[in-house]
């Protein structure tokens, strides 16, 4: 059919044909719906609420702490800060990972099952653009709403608790570590969504990594160096300025970065071969 000459044909890079439009669609699913503020409220309320209880409310943890623990932390105030940060990073990290899995498990598998992926790929769209748009468009809202916003509020609470600005560099480094932890589970979930045809294995493997990783690493210690399983603890230790043993932090961070790259790579390769 002869095209209307007034319309300009899209001129996009060949290998990423369709990326911009798909990116916009994915972003709109966050920012154009109530999804963004529901998640912002949920995660901020949950994580900051727990941290606030530790930081401001008199609680059993503090009342029952023995002198040695308080002394080791550098006094009662430091002990309370450490508890607040522990709840935020050590408990919050895995919680955010679970949230990431729940929020993203359907991104690819849902579209595969509903036929939407088939329809999208019947347009001039490369498979690479489809996969990368999922990663690139979902990472910012996840990091901003699940990690960034609660972190900013917790930083404010910490500063309020000590009546001065909490040291920014260690706190930001810890937030960065949790961001990497979250990205690991985002890319892992997307890759699993491409590999499998139903949600069971995705949830099983991803949640198994969060819940079972610590147990497995307890038996085989070197696993902590090549997985993100210790990152929440590393984030807490970093934020509180405590020492991290034997290069565990850098090793697990490098390993997590490599895992993220590997997950994206496998997702791209596998999706090229996926048939609809």
């Amino acid at each position: 059919m002869s095209a209307n000459l007034e319309l300009q044909r899209l001129n996009e890079r060949k290998g990423l044909r369709g990326f911009a439009n798909l990116y916009q669609k994915e972003s709109q699913a966050w920012w154009g719906t109530r999804r963004w503020w529901i998640n912002a409220l949920l995660w901020t309320g949950l994580l900051c609420g727990l941290a606030a209880i530790m930081l401001f409310a008199p609680n059993d943890e503090v009342n029952n702490a023995d002198e040695a623990e308080i002394m080791q932390a550098g006094g009662l105030a430091a002990y309370v800060l450490s508890l607040g940060l522990s709840v935020f990073f050590e408990f919050g990290g895995p919680m955010l990972a679970i949230g990431t899995i729940v929020l993203t498990q359907d991104l690819i598998i849902g579209e595969k099952q509903s036929g939407l992926a088939e329809w999208l790929l019947s347009k001039p769209v490369t498979r690479r653009a489809y996969v990368l748009s999922k990663v690139v468009a979902n990472a910012p809202p996840l990091l901003l709403l699940l990690v960034g916003l609660p972190s900013a509020l917790v930083y404010g609470m910490l500063s309020l608790r000590i009546h001065a600005l909490y040291p920014l560099a260690p706190f930001l480094t810890a937030v960065g570590i949790i961001a990497m932890h979250t990205l690991f589970y985002l890319t892992m979930t997307l890759m699993l969504g491409i590999i499998f045809s139903n949600r069971g294995p995705i949830l099983g493997i991803a949640l198994g990594s969060i819940l079972g990783g610590g147990i497995l690493g307890g038996f085989i210690k070197p696993l902590f160096y090549v997985t993100p399983w210790m990152l929440p603890k590393v984030a807490w230790l970093t934020a509180t300025g405590q020492a991290i043993s034997n290069g565990l932090g850098p090793a697990s961070l490098v390993a997590t970065t490599l895992w993220i790259a590997a997950f994206v790579f496998v997702a791209l390769i596998k999706f090229e071969k996926t048939e609809f």
Binding site: L7, Q8, R9, G18, N21, K123
Partner: peptide
């Protein structure tokens, strides 16, 4: 509109 944007870049009013 979303479908059309896989093919056309503009002008928006024409799309």
């Amino acid at each position: 509109f979303f479908t059309a944007r896989f093919f056309f870049s503009g002008p928006q009013s024409k799309i």
